[in-house]
């Protein structure tokens, strides 16, 4: 199963072990999201959650090239980013359930998971709201003279936010090591981006002189090789980059959006053929680096870990009432 591919295509310089790790990470996100959905539909999770299913290759492909001390900022659809950057399943679920053991002691919930130990500066409930924060992290990196990189994840909905353009302009002016990753999943909430984004998406960045690429966000090998390029470039003083990763939100805007009247089932079926997990499975199989038994074992191991994490979170205590007034001020 570890037979390597001798060609020089995307990611071919990496061995099967690496790709199986990436596969496992994508499966972990997929299983996490399925479990979150189950917690919602069984009324065991307060509030809602925005699932990342279908977009896993972007978070994993980007974070695979990042170091632990690199930064990310995330979005309301952020579970995938947090997990890809190294967050633990149990504390993630605990946060989703509002438990004290959660990453934010139950104060943040699904949309605000932050974990400084893995460089996660926080998911954000404001669309595009973290563009400034990621850019500020880039400024901080420059002023402190380190070789860290900050990756700013956002969706195509954020292309409507002026803050993004203010931030990219300054990042380019000052050559800040910030990678702006637009996860173009086609819809801002319930509206297709053909109705909200005029002109060229890439052109929004090239106008500032920012290095920009549009890529297939379903293919983790493409995401990985592009990430390697722009992250190394930024780390070496080459300045910011802007990636438009074309992808699709396999589920609704949030767990409660089940009818999805704003798009067709045919469109969904077309995109389902390009499931990022399946694409990687196919490639690993075709190149004889792994087979179905390997994928099944990984899926089972991950499912066991997810089940344990869910149980941990369900049994974990809620915060004490005294917690409500803590952490308003440092």
């Amino acid at each position: 199963m570890t037979e390597t591919n001798g060609t020089k295509q995307n990611g071919a310089e990496l061995d099967a072990e690496h790709w199986l790790q990436a596969y496992e990470q994508m499966v972990r996100i997929r299983s996490f999201e399925e479990a979150a959905n189950e917690l919602y539909t069984s009324a065991r999770m307060p509030g809602i959650a925005h699932l990342y299913i279908g977009e896993e290759a972007i978070a994993v492909g980007m974070c695979e090239v990042l170091r632990q001390d690199d930064y990310i900022t995330s979005t309301h659809r952020g579970h995938g980013h947090c997990l890809a950057k190294g967050a633990a399943l149990d504390r993630m679920f605990a946060e989703l359930l509002g438990k004290e053991a959660g990453y934010c002691r139950g104060k943040g919930g699904s949309m605000h998971i932050a974990d400084q130990e893995t460089g996660n500066l926080g998911a954000n409930g404001i669309v595009g709201g973290s563009a400034g924060i990621a850019t500020g992290a880039g400024m901080s990196i420059k002023l402190r003279g380190t070789d860290q990189v900050a990756v700013c994840f956002f969706g195509d909905g954020a292309l409507g936010q002026g803050l993004l353009y203010e931030s990219m302009n300054m990042a380019q002016l000052w050559k800040l090591p910030v990678i702006y990753v637009c996860e173009n999943n086609q819809y801002g909430e319930y509206t297709h981006n053909s109705k909200t984004a005029a002109g060229s998406m890439i052109g929004r960045a090239t106008g500032f002189g920012v290095h920009a690429q549009g890529i297939d966000g379903q293919d983790i090998r493409t995401v990985y090789s592009t990430a390697r390029l722009v992250v190394d470039r930024a780390r070496n003083g080459g300045g910011p980059a802007f990636l438009v990763c074309n992808t699709y939100r396999f589920r609704g805007h949030h767990v409660g959006d089940i009818d999805r009247p704003y798009r067709t089932r045919e469109e969904e079926e077309e995109w389902a053929k390009r499931d990022p997990l399946k694409l990687l499975e196919d490639w690993l199989t075709k190149t004889r680096q792994a087979d179905a038994s390997v994928f099944e074992r990984i899926q089972q191991d991950v499912q066991t870990a997810v089940d344990e994490a869910v149980n941990f979170a369900l049994e974990a205590p809620f915060p004490e009432e005294s917690e409500v007034e803590r952490h308003v001020y440092a």
């Binding site: 900022t73 926080g122 924060i133 850019t135 500020g136 992290a137 880039g138 400024m139 203010e166 300054m170």
Partner: peptide, 12 residues
Amino acid sequence: GIAGIGVGAAIT
């Protein structure tokens, strides 16, 4: 933008 840069730089 500069306020956002302030927040991000402060966090880091």
